[in-house]
């Protein structure tokens, strides 16, 4: 672990990604305690304030402190995205591994179906699923997880097949190792690294997708301080106070940039031969 961290710090992407994601995780964990105000406390006299010493990032249409809302919203946005990605990865990894393991016609049938599902754009699939399940954060999470599963299945399968062709797996088969040992000790450690990389990059997409769903009114519901929802609500007041819409937009972008950089840094750091 320490060695991987050291390798990550050596590349500019890895170092920057670590810093950004580290700050975001800090905001997720202790953000609410550091928030200067109650994120839902309305103050009719303090509406549409620009950034000032009192309100660092200004206030919204109800006079709520934007910084406090962003800090509280970090959990709603980032944690949801991470869970959705992890869930999608899990489902995808299981399907992909089974497909690679079965091989032959079953593999082909599964992969053709996965391809077919992937021809529904992920935002559209998520929209349809949310529509089916009803508007809420949890349903948006499930929708994103399901929308990610086919892509992760494809990645897992191709990685698993590449590893399967390696002679160390052949050697284990020739040695008479059990299927459990081959999958668990020989293949898995070599499959996990690329999947972790792919997953990290997908967290960035999940954050964007989740915020987009909330923006379209299908994810988090008011008065939540989810960032996409904050942008959607601020749109009407864009002319009055551009700050209201700018800050949550930048927050979403920053999280996505952070995870993208972290993923690329991890890719380099996890390569055992570099």
């Amino acid at each position: 672990m320490i060695e991987i961290l050291k390798r990550m710090l050596r590349s500019p992407q890895g170092a920057l990604g670590l810093v950004i994601v580290g700050l975001i995780l800090l905001a997720v964990i202790v953000g609410p305690w550091f928030a200067p105000y109650d994120p839902e406390k309305m103050a009719p006299l303090m509406r549409y304030k620009p950034p000032s010493a009192q309100f660092w990032l200004g206030t919204d249409q109800y006079g709520r402190d934007i910084l406090s809302r962003l800090l509280h919203g970090a959990r709603a946005t980032v944690v949801m995205a991470v869970i959705a990605t992890a869930l999608g990865t899990l489902v995808g990894a299981v399907v992909g591994t089974i497909s690679a393991f079965l091989g032959g016609r079953s593999d082909e049938a599964i992969m053709r179906t996965v391809d077919a599902i992937m021809s529904i754009p992920s935002l559209l699939l998520a929209l349809l699923i949310v529509n089916l399940l009803g508007k809420s954060s949890v349903n948006a999470l499930l929708a994103i997880a399901l929308a990610f599963a086919p892509g992760m299945a494809r990645v897992t399968r191709s990685v698993a097949l590449a590893v399967r062709k390696q002679d160390y797996v052949n050697a284990a088969i020739a040695r008479g190792e059990s299927a459990a040992y081959i999958v668990g000790r020989e293949m898995l450690p070599n499959v996990v690294a690329p999947i972790v990389v792919e997953m990290t990059i997908r967290v960035a997409f999940a954050v964007m997708l989740f915020a987009t769903l909330s923006f379209l009114g299908l994810g988090a519901q008011p008065p939540a301080s989810e960032w996409g929802l904050m942008v959607a609500e601020a749109r009407r007041f864009m002319h009055l106070s551009p700050w209201m819409i700018l800050w949550p937009s930048l927050a979403v972008a920053l999280v996505a940039i952070g995870f993208n950089l972290l993923g690329d840094g991890l890719r380099d750091a996890l390569n055992p031969r570099s």
Binding site: Q166, D167, Y168, N170, A171, R175, R185, N190, P272
Partner: peptide
Amino acid sequence: QIIFQHPDSSLNPRQRIREILSRPLEL
């Protein structure tokens, strides 16, 4: 037993030599 052409491919890059050699002993 079989020995392959490319040791880069036939030795698992994520296992120490100790683990690689202990498997046949255990089996």
